[in-house]
Design a binder for these strands. Structure first.
Length: 606
DNA sequence: CGGACAAGCTGA
DNA sequence: CAGCTTGTCCGG
């Protein structure tokens, strides 16, 4: 186990100055409690009431226990983070008010402390994540150990041989053999990106006859033993006898917490496994460079890997004559009419109705003369100013043409056009489309969120993929690939007969070529070169500082050696260091100014 | 965070 | 100088 790091910036205990004479030593056991009030972020010492001896509460109370404490005239919650401590002299100790619940073990608290330092956040925020949602007072008996049936897949067993393995598995390939192989070794912790995936996987594992706890619901059951499956917060779950850690789809951005501290489940999983001396397996159809930093990816034989990807149609829009809005090409017609099977899911990454119209004749943008903003088009061929809602006929002001070209079609508009072209009903999928509508629909359209709401499809169409490829984000390629992987999951492998259609004017783009050839290794080299050239993670570590107190923080930071400070841009600064450890050390040394401050370590955007 | 308390401001 | 607002400090 790695040594605990002293963390001067995070917790101040006002330790006693080695008292010469110990006098008036308070009677009884004293514990140190970290409050769950984020703004306090301090630990205080409390007496364990002597009455707790008799009813077993004293025995149940241990490091990690969740307690209520009197503090400044009110009761607040907290965690016991040290036992049998010597309180600072001269303070009048108060007694614990209540033993609320079991909490994280000492190992998890140490891991949380490491994460709080690594992501420059508060320990209490991580302990909250590590604690049960509802109070737990007893742990159920351990489930009987059940041996997974069937013979062990060699690739799965091999992945568990090393301390940390990046395992490249195509989207249509089940991870169940890996989980079974891990379960043979003992209790396994499995981290997946979404709750839906966690539920589905837990069901599969249960059907395979293995005991499984679904986090965060089954905190107590997780502590009892068996396999533990959950989303990122499960990386701090109690696991009885940890034997392996598996991170599924480690490339997925859902593994990173979006609130402060922005910890990443992949990195935490690796550290947890390392501390426990058990293997950590990171799976992904397209391993992140961060995962590949642990060594070359293990993979299936190429022929087998290809079978795990769907068939891909790249629809090159360049020589195309546009149909209707120009968004739907002739080549789509057989697909959206269901000739390759149903349901067909169309993805368009834009929201709302047409926002930007141009005259088809003279090319002028259709704007409001008074407010200089683009006009929107109504159902009844009327133009509306978004500022004062004034309506006028749909006629070009400069040439009188009544034909407009939609430069930014929204989902609603595309739905109508799809319906006309497919000659059948199209369901527009939004956050509040009822589940029943989704189940019956044969043809659907929505933003990328539609890929989360539908379970299976015979065909997925990306109506306009170029904006993903050209997005001005450092992780654009990776994010585009993640989207393709999500789509491929709905389609299954090659033998399932699903089709992935992508409309593009960039058919030679490396992401699309990698998809077409079912070969993500084509992305590794160009992406590595690019990141190295721009000095981006994993070849550096970044933190974004924003909020009202950001300026003061940067002033306090000064100009440490081997650290770059970039910005401000839009009121935010970027701090770059060679390694995550260096970055964390530098951030921890800065005196925190009062006021709102957001420190985003390893930002996904920018 | 939320209470306590001190310092500063206002009105007569 | 009471009565109030605003700011700073501290909690075991």
């Amino acid at each position: 186990m790695a040594g605990k790091k002293a963390d001067p910036g995070q917790l101040s205990f006002d330790l006693p100055q080695e008292p010469a004479v110990i006098e008036e030593q308070p009677e009884g056991r004293v514990v140190r409690v970290l409050t769950d009030v984020t703004a306090i972020d301090r630990a205080f010492d409390y007496l364990v009431p002597s009455t707790w001896e008799a009813d077993g509460r004293s025995e149940a109370l241990q490091i990690g226990s969740s307690v209520r404490i009197p503090l400044a005239g009110r009761r607040v919650g907290g965690w016991v983070i040290a036992d049998n401590v010597e309180p600072p002299p001269g303070v009048k100790l108060r007694s614990l008010a209540k033993l609320s619940s079991r909490g994280p073990s000492e190992e998890i608290i140490d891991l949380a402390r490491w994460a709080a330092h690594r992501w420059a956040g508060r320990l209490s925020s991580l302990l909250k994540t590590a604690s049960p949602a509802v109070n737990v007072t007893r742990i159920p008996p351990a489930p009987a150990h059940i041996e997974a049936h069937g013979k062990e897949a060699t690739w799965a067993a091999r992945a568990l041989e090393q301390p940390c393995t990046s395992l490249r598995l195509p989207p249509g390939f089940s991870v169940l053999p890996l989980l079974k192989a891990a379960a043979r070794r003992g209790d396994t912790l499995v981290i997946v990106p979404t709750l839906k995936q966690a539920q589905r996987l837990a069901l599969e594992v249960r059907q395979a006859g293995l005991p499984v706890a679904l986090m965060p619901r089954d905190w107590a059951r997780a502590a009892a033993g068996g396999m533990v499956i959950g989303t990122r917060s499960a990386v701090l779950a109690p696991v009885a006898n940890l034997a392996a850690v598996v991170v599924i789809d480690e490339h997925d951005e859902a593994h990173q917490e979006e609130r402060n501290p922005t910890w990443h489940a992949r990195e935490l999983a690796i550290e947890r496994a390392r501390r426990a001396g058990v293997p950590c397996v990171l799976t992904s159809p397209n391993p992140s460079l961060e995962a590949l930093a642990w060594g070359e990816a293990q993979m299936l034989p190429r022929a087998e890997e290809r079978q795990g990807w769907p068939k891909v149609d790249l629809i090159d829009r360049r020589p195309d004559d546009p149909v209707r809005s120009g968004l739907l090409s002739e080549a789509l017609v057989p697909l959206i009419r269901g000739e390759q099977g149903d349901p067909v899911v169309c993805v368009l990454n834009r929201k709302g109705r047409s926002r930007l119209l141009a005259c088809a004749q003279c090319g002028n943008l259709i704007c409001c003369e008074d407010h200089q903003v683009p006009l929107t088009q109504d159902d009844q061929e009327v133009l509306i100013c978004p500022i004062d809602q004034v309506r006028r006929p749909a006629v070009c002001e400069s040439c009188g043409s009544v034909r407009f070209k939609n430069l930014r079609a929204g989902v609603t508009r595309v739905r109508e056009e799809l319906e006309a072209l497919a000659r059948r009903p199209v369901v527009e999928v939004t956050a509040d489309t009822p589940e029943s509508d989704l189940k019956q629909a044969k043809l659907l359209v929505g933003t990328e969120a539609v890929l989360h709401r539908v379970d299976r499809a015979a065909c997925v169409v990306f109506l306009e993929f170029d904006q993903e490829l050209l997005a001005p984000r450092t992780r654009a390629s990776e994010q585009a690939m993640a989207l393709i992987i999500r789509a491929a999951r709905l389609l299954g492998g090659r033998q399932d007969g699903g089709r992935l259609a992508i409309q593009t004017r960039l058919p030679d783009h490396e992401v699309l070529q990698a998809t077409l050839l079912s070969d993500p290794s084509r992305l590794v080299e160009p992406e590595t070169v690019r990141r190295q050239l721009l000095n981006l993670p994993p070849f550096s570590a970044l933190a974004q500082i924003s909020g009202a107190a950001a300026q003061a923080f940067i002033t306090n930071l000064g100009r440490p050696e081997e650290v770059d400070v970039l910005g401000p841009r839009d009121g935010a600064w970027l701090i770059r260091a060679k390694t995550a450890e260096k970055l964390a050390d530098v951030l921890a040394q800065v005196e925190r100014p009062p006021g709102r401050l957001r420190i985003e370590v390893g930002p996904l955007r920018s």
